[in-house]
């Protein structure tokens, strides 16, 4: 199974740290799920079994707005525990739901995120 990921990040945050954090999480998810994870541009986001928006940091909400009209429901926000990524995801999910759309934040332990990704991929999201 293939999971495509579109990352959004604010330039306010340390990009080297973000890359390390992203690489660590994707490496874990690959080992735990056996799925192939690829960071892609917005045009290829839905060429996969599961499509995720990876919110890498606080302040990235405006970058979400730039691609919002290209996204399909449910909008699934993969979220770290650092750099105000969760805070940004909550603001984004509130916006999405205020617009009457469905969405979800994937956040918690690596194990929880992996098990939820397996469930979502099976559901064909």
């Amino acid at each position: 199974m293939k999971v495509n990921i579109y990352p959004i990040v604010s330039p306010l945050h340390n990009s080297e740290f973000m890359e390390r954090e992203t690489s660590r999480l994707l490496s874990y998810l690959y080992k735990r799920t056996g799925m192939e994870f690829e960071e892609v541009g917005i045009d290829r986001l839905y060429d996969a079994d599961l499509s995720l928006i990876m919110v890498e940091s606080g302040g990235s909400e405006g970058y979400f707005l730039k691609v919002h009209d290209k996204l399909k429901e449910p909008i699934i926000l993969l979220t770290f525990g650092n750099s105000n990524s969760l805070a940004a995801s909550m603001e984004i999910l509130t916006y999405v739901q205020n617009a009457g759309e469905k969405g979800e934040i994937l956040h918690g332990s690596d194990e929880y995120i992996a098990s939820r990704i397996i469930e979502l991929a099976k559901e064909g999201k």
């Binding site: 650092n82 105000n84 805070a87 909550m90 603001e91 999910l93 509130t94 739901q97 979800e104 934040i105």
Partner: peptide
């Protein structure tokens, strides 16, 4: 993370934050 940090044990369900938040 930002400089002042607290760990809180919330009474009841915390899925509000992940499923139906009212903002950040």
């Amino acid at each position: 993370l930002c400089r002042s940090q607290i760990q809180v044990k919330v009474d009841g369900d915390v899925t509000y934050f992940l499923k139906r938040p009212l903002g950040n």
